[in-house]
Amino acid sequence: MPLIKNGHYIDDAYIRIEGEAPVPDDGDVLVDAVRLKDDTAVLRPRQGKLGVLLMNTVDAEELVPHLSKLALVALEFPQFHDGRAFSQARVLRHTLHFKGEIRATGKPMADQAGHLVRCGFDCFETNTRQPLDVWQRALDAVRGVYQRDYAGLGDVVRKDL
């Protein structure tokens, strides 16, 4: 699936480690969140970045003990209308002050771009029906945000707030 970040398509640098498969010594890897708990080998010092895939039924707070070691948290949209990941992203960014990449995976919809960005996502999985320009257009469509502490770069917030 194509990925979009910073207004461009990017290559996915992360290798997805399915289930309990071993984690190689180097390269960026994406593992299931449960492995942070039970598998110390995942957290061993190694070359390459560590990302986790957090299911939308798990609290973002579960990542707290390892947050400083994570470069990426991938959140899931099994369907575009299952909006749990919006809250997970918001908690990661706002409550837990996570600074790494937050990726929207699964079936996010380009027309949700504004919502995604304002909750803290900065990378989006997309498909051929939703090319980059559709995402960009959606993001530019409504620039004003009423929720002052959700505003991102480029947003217009009501002046006095």
Partner: peptide
């Protein structure tokens, strides 16, 4: 105003 296109609570 606060609920209009709320980033987190529209889905």
């Amino acid at each position: 105003q606060w609920s209009s296109l709320h980033p987190e609570f529209c889905f």
